[in-house]
Design a protein around this nucleic acid. Structure first.
Lengths: 203, 203
DNA sequence: CGCAATATTAACCATTTGGTTAAAGCAACC
DNA sequence: GGTTGCTTTAACCAAATGGTTAATATTGCG
């Protein structure tokens, strides 16, 4: 934003409201009026701060993607031990996503709707990702883990972390869980998922 | 459908077209006109066969949910060996989803949009699910696998199967894959995922 | 204060979109 | 051939929706 906007916190209020609405309903299902209502302002003011729906969405998506990607990676920035890194990553992911359980599904949904346009937003944690892959590669050559492709391990780890959030409505229904039970399940997984992974890869 | 509809395959054509559009765009993003175009018919004819968007959607969702749930479970109906059951399930899931890679995300998306209303549609594979859980429980008491909660193992297995499809746009971008490379990755996982799981749970 | 710039709103507009209607095709059947 | 009942269509409609405009309120400042 090059414009000055010497505002009264309004832009932040709008963004926060938009975030809630977009994450709940998705770009296609979200309504500008609903965002305005949730922010407690006039609809025209949305267009004053963010020219159109697309730009408002991008403002929201950028922050959300950062939250899911770069933010998480920083959790294990300087861990030299792979097992320790895995534990930290999983714990950071679970705890962070418990605050916004719809985030993983939202990201997946929107990336699927407009891969070309949103591609740029998810490149943030790239360096940390590379570091993780190297950590796996080292452990592999060192022989402290079995022979597994680093990328594959990463995908598996992400899968075990993200899926319960993506599939939450199914899980809660099938297992007859309420929100609190879901939360407990995630907190349990914070412990069991790293164990599950490490059991599988330990040499 | 209690009405007779002595049609010319039109209802099926509509459903197939609706399926493609809804799965691609989701309920909120799909347009009745687009479905009509894709089916090569007039928009009013949609409402002749399926009264409104909601019912057309339900027609699509019912079939899709069956495909993802009950259909898969039948793969290992009568396998008495847990490890064998896991291998079969994963293989069936991967192969089936390769035909409709957007299906898992679609189901998750819509279940999140309207959990109450769609809840009923996902109860299909319940008996097979129970059988799987019992198989795990047996193996656990028998001591052929480590001490793991059956439900947890099931969630992990589903996670490892479904996540690559849900996160496909991210994966293909980050790893610089095209559709064919994605397909190869899934086919590789058909082998490595069961191995990953079994390594982790084998006593 | 008074003025300029920014912030906010109510009313309005054009387009999109789900859905309807009434008429036209078209098949079978007498 | 015409009548009857299902199928298909073009034209139409009302509501919803993204976006604009012009006027009003508010703030900072000389």
């Amino acid at each position: 934003m090059s414009t000055v906007h010497q505002e009264h916190g309004t832009e932040e209020r709008i963004l926060a409201a938009a975030r809630r609405v977009f994450i709940r309903k998705g770009m296609a299902g979200a309504r500008m009026q609903e965002v305005a209502d949730e922010a407690g302002i006039n609809k025209a003011l949305l267009h004053y701060y963010f020219r159109d729906k697309q730009r408002l969405f991008e403002g929201v998506f950028k922050g959300s993607a950062d939250q899911q990607f770069s933010c998480i990676w920083n959790s294990f920035t300087d861990s030299p031990d792979l097992f320790d890194a895995i534990e930290r990553f999983v714990a950071a992911y679970m705890e962070r996503m418990l605050e916004d359980p719809l985030l993983p599904l939202f990201i997946a949904q929107e990336m699927n709707r407009d891969p070309e346009g949103l591609r740029a937003f998810i490149d943030r944690g790239e360096s940390s990702r590379q570091r993780f892959l190297r950590l796996v590669e080292e452990a592999r050559t060192k022989g402290s883990i079995i022979d597994i492709e680093p990328r594959e391990l990463l995908v598996n780890m992400m899968a075990l972390c993200a899926h319960p959030f993506v599939a939450r409505p199914m899980l809660t229904h099938i297992h007859g869980m309420n929100d609190e039970a879901f939360r407990r399940m995630i907190l349990k997984r914070r412990k069991t998922v790293p164990e599950f992974i490490i059991r599988s890869i330990r040499a």
